[in-house]
Amino acid sequence: MNVEELVAKVKEILSDMVKDVVVHKGNDYIEVEIDKDNIIEAAKRMKQAGFDHIKDLTVVDYPKDGVFRIIYNLSSYSNRELSYYIVGLAYNIPRDKPETVTLYPIYTTADFQEREAYEAFGITFKGHPDMRPLLLSPPVAEMKPLRKDFVVKEEPIDLK
């Protein structure tokens, strides 16, 4: 299976939900943009098609556009052909209302990963049974450290 066939396959699985498909450098990673409202249905279909786990949930902050981009990078263990590729299911949510729905009922792998996105960006995943910080303590998580407006303080290395 080459990357064009994969793109065609994903378009067939998700049919009219696909807004845009981007093939990134290296030809092994594609990013499929969908609507926020379709994420549950899209995830269900992808899982049925053999993308059986979430490799990684990535959130990227774009303050200029006023959005968070949520990317569920899916891949497969059980299907050898699909396992070569990563398919990123991506959608944007507004920065001033960081709320979305959880994929936990569909993918158990989303459990800790959504908690990580919650503590680092302050995004609430509705329906997640245990929405607490994972790595950070609550006061640190309150600062939403991975947002772009959280600036890392640099200390001078010279002695005063």
């Binding site: 450098k25 290296g26 990673y29 990013e31």
Partner: peptide, 20 residues
């Protein structure tokens, strides 16, 4: 400019990097 996704097999399993 661009995005890349890369993974590798460490002793304890797969590690993946999303780089933008």
């Amino acid at each position: 400019k661009g995005k890349a996704y890369e993974r590798g097999e460490t002793a304890r399993g797969e590690i993946s990097y999303y780089v933008e």
